[in-house]
Each structure stands twice: as C-alpha cells, then as structure tokens.
Design a protein around this nucleic acid. Sequence first.
DNA 1: TGTAAGATCTAG
DNA 2: TAGATCTTACAA
Length: 211
Amino acid sequence: MRNLRIQEDFFRLPTLLMTEKLLGMVLVHHAPGGELLKGKIVETEAYLAEGDQACHAYRGMTPRNRPMFASPGTIYIYFTYGNHYLMNIVTEPEGTAGAVLLRALEPLEGVAAMERNRGSKSGTILTNGPGKLTQAMGIGPELNSCSLLHSPKLFLEEGKPPLPDEIGTSGRIGISRSTELPWRKYISTSPYVSGKASTKRCKKTRNALES
DNA sequence: TGTAAGATCTAG
DNA sequence: TAGATCTTACAA
C-alpha cells in the first residue's frame, strides 16, 4: 500500500502557499485511548514574524513561541483565553518564525471519539473552530514541539485537494492587528468552516475601521 | 508584582 | 451578549 504520509519537502513550501496546500489534507492522530482520529483540513491562517503584528513571534523568541522557530513540520500548540489549545504547523526554515494555524476540520474517522472529547456535541460545531478541533482530536500541550515528520502519533496524510474555485480567501479572524492581511484560506463549500465573527471581534474591527 | 490583552467558546 | 478562564508579556 502506498505511503500517504506527507514528507519533508512539503513543509519547506512558503507559509502563504502552505495555507492553501494544506486545504484538503488529512490530519491523523492516534489518540492515547487507542482511537484513530482523522479530519480533513478546511480552514487555515498564516502567521509570519516579519511585518505581522498579530504573530506571537513578532517581537522575537520567548519561551512560549520557541517552537515557531524550529524546523518546518514542527507543531506549535499554545493555550489561550484560559480554555483553549490552538494548533499550528511550523513553516519557514529553522531560525525563522512562521506557522499555519489550523482553524477548522471536517471529521473523517473516529467521529464517536471526537464527539466524546467535545462533550457529546455533534454536527458542524464539532470542529468548526481552532479550539474546537484540538479538543475533538484530543490534541493538547503534550504534543507541543513534536514533529509531523517524525511523530508516530500525529501526522498529515494526502487528501483530495479542493478545486481552485472552491478556495476562499479573507482577512484573519479573532485578531486585533494586521487584520487587513488576506492570509486566511478556506474551502468555501465546506459546512465546517468557522468564521462567524464574535461580538468582541466585530467591535474591535469596527473600532479599527473608524479610527 | 500588577495589569491588560488575548489566534476562543458557550450558556442564556 | 456577556462572562468564564488563566497564561503571557510588559510596565513599574
């Protein structure tokens, strides 16, 4: 059988190209409980240290963002809002910070386990957000700094890429700076795409536009 | 040491 | 729509 696992060359692509190429690929996690969880990536965002004030590494390396400076294919997982773990795939050569945030997945395998992980929620709200997808997939801080190239538990597989006219582009969501950069990519036909702007975000965006 | 902000989510 | 939640970064 053909090895579907994504290899090193892919992770050397420029970050902005990677946001597009990741759409349709399959994230695979062998969860500690023994379940095999798979989900198709349907929404991504790029973060680059250079010129991007919304990027954690904009001001340089800190203990938290250290994995962003590691080799391409490394996983950067961080905790935010007191509740949520968010998962990024590190891009750019070692020493240069760049990453792609996974914002939404379409569940493919292990749906029952995902629903359990999410507290019996089902349907699109299972994985239509960056915090939701990590919870559903059982991805937590223990996987921070591991590599999609070498980890036996977490890796990417080839999937069916979207057609060019299925790929949507927009400004990034949930941030207050550099919102004008069109660095969010999504599969427009997928019901699992997040993107319902929160109130907080609307206010902030409105304020930014008014000032 | 104190404070503000934050790549979010959910209940009501 | 408001609040829970708590870590990180930065200023004093």
